[in-house]
Computed example of a mutant assay.
Amino acid sequence: MTTHEAILDAALDRITAGYVFPDRTAAIEATIRGRQAEGAYEGLEERELCERVTADLQSACPDKHLRLLWSEEPQPMDEEPEEVARERFERYARENNYGVRRVEQLDGNIGYLDLRMIAPAEPGGPAFAAAMQLLAPTDALIVDLRQCSGGAPEGVQLWCSYFFAGDEVHLNDIYERKTGVTRQYWTLGHLAAPRYLDRRVVVLTSGFTFSGGEELAYNLKALKRATLVGETTRGGAHPTARVPVAPHVMVTVPTARSINPVTGTNWEGVGVVPEVEVPAEDALETALNLLR
């Protein structure tokens, strides 16, 4: 068996065993096997193989989280324990200031929060609270998610909690295939900084905004707590496991899915559509004009 064959076999096994929509796995495998039989993957370097297979996976099933990823550094072949993965993500979040890139008071007493990722709630909580404390005196707020690459559901829950009173707002549900359990996410009753209530909020989006950043935008839009300005987001709504299938290759398998309690669906494959559609580079100025 060639290396490419072993990678494809292992990736398809993982997708069949774990993908959140098991009824779609047969069509996914048929597509990849058909392309393999055509010789579509012959002679490719591993990085190129990942790109080609990812395109074919998403052609068979338009799920942005369903991918083969190539890593320049070799990865351990043992599946990463959950606690190790959590520690790695928390370290990454800490190195990126828990996603809080910029907090500013703009002219007209408009607050500005630039979020590049959604950190886990426990380690990120103090940074979230520090940002919201600084923004508390402003008359309106712009949350910039144009460069937000995603993050943790509990982090989204904590950020959303700052924009609603009390703990009685149902934000999102996540269904997990492995356990069959649906976990509900509601606003939190206790926060470490003042809530941002009774003032206008505008969220900026782009075609780059993804995953947890999309959930934050989607929740606030569905609950009519914010106006979205910018571009339709990338469209990735499924929490995902990363599993090594070769020293330099991982398959990412969506193992759960979001279910918004207001819409009954999510943004997978379609993205979050803003109320005010403008090019991403014009979104901030457009938002400022809305708020002035």
Rank of each mutant, 00 (worst) to 15 (best):
E5S: 09
A6K: 05
I7A: 09
D9M: 12
D9T: 12
A10I: 00
A10K: 08
A11V: 01
L12A: 00
D13M: 11
I15A: 00
Y19L: 03
R24F: 05
A26W: 11
E29F: 09
T31N: 15
T31M: 13
I32G: 04
A37F: 09
G39I: 06
Y41L: 13
Y41I: 14
E46S: 12
R47S: 11
L49E: 02
R52N: 10
R52M: 15
Q58K: 08
Q58T: 13
S59P: 15
A60Y: 11
P62T: 13
P62A: 12
L66S: 14
R67L: 10
R67M: 14
W70I: 00
E72L: 00
E72A: 00
P74Q: 04
E79N: 13
E80F: 10
P81M: 02
V84N: 11
R86L: 01
R86W: 01
R88D: 10
F89L: 04
R91H: 09
Y92T: 09
A93G: 14
A93R: 08
E95M: 11
V100Q: 02
V103M: 01
E104Y: 03
Q105W: 00
L106N: 04
L106T: 03
G108S: 05
N109I: 00
I110Y: 07
G111D: 01
D114F: 03
R116I: 12
R116P: 00
M117A: 02
E122N: 06
E122S: 14
G125S: 13
P126S: 05
P126Y: 02
P126W: 08
A131D: 13
A131P: 07
M132I: 02
T138L: 11
D139N: 12
D139Q: 05
L145M: 03
L145A: 02
L145E: 07
R146I: 01
R146Q: 03
R146D: 10
S149T: 08
E154A: 15
G155C: 14
V156T: 04
V156F: 10
Q157K: 06
Q157A: 06
C160N: 10
Y162A: 06
Y162L: 06
F163W: 08
F163N: 05
G166W: 10
N172F: 03
D173G: 03
Y175E: 02
Y175V: 05
R177I: 01
R177K: 04
V181I: 12
Y185K: 01
W186I: 00
T187S: 10
G189Y: 09
G189R: 04
A192I: 12
R195P: 07
R195E: 06
D198R: 13
D198V: 07
R199C: 06
V201R: 10
L204T: 07
G207L: 01
E215Y: 12
Y218H: 15
N219S: 12
T227S: 12
T227R: 08
L228Y: 03
G230I: 14
T232L: 09
T232A: 06
G235N: 04
A237W: 00
A241V: 09
R242L: 14
V243M: 07
P244M: 01
V245R: 14
V251T: 09
T252V: 07
R257Y: 13
I259Y: 08
N260D: 05
P261K: 06
W267L: 08
E268R: 15
E268T: 08
V270P: 06
G271P: 13
G271Q: 02
V272N: 05
A280P: 05
D282E: 09
E285R: 14
L288I: 00
R292K: 12
R292C: 15
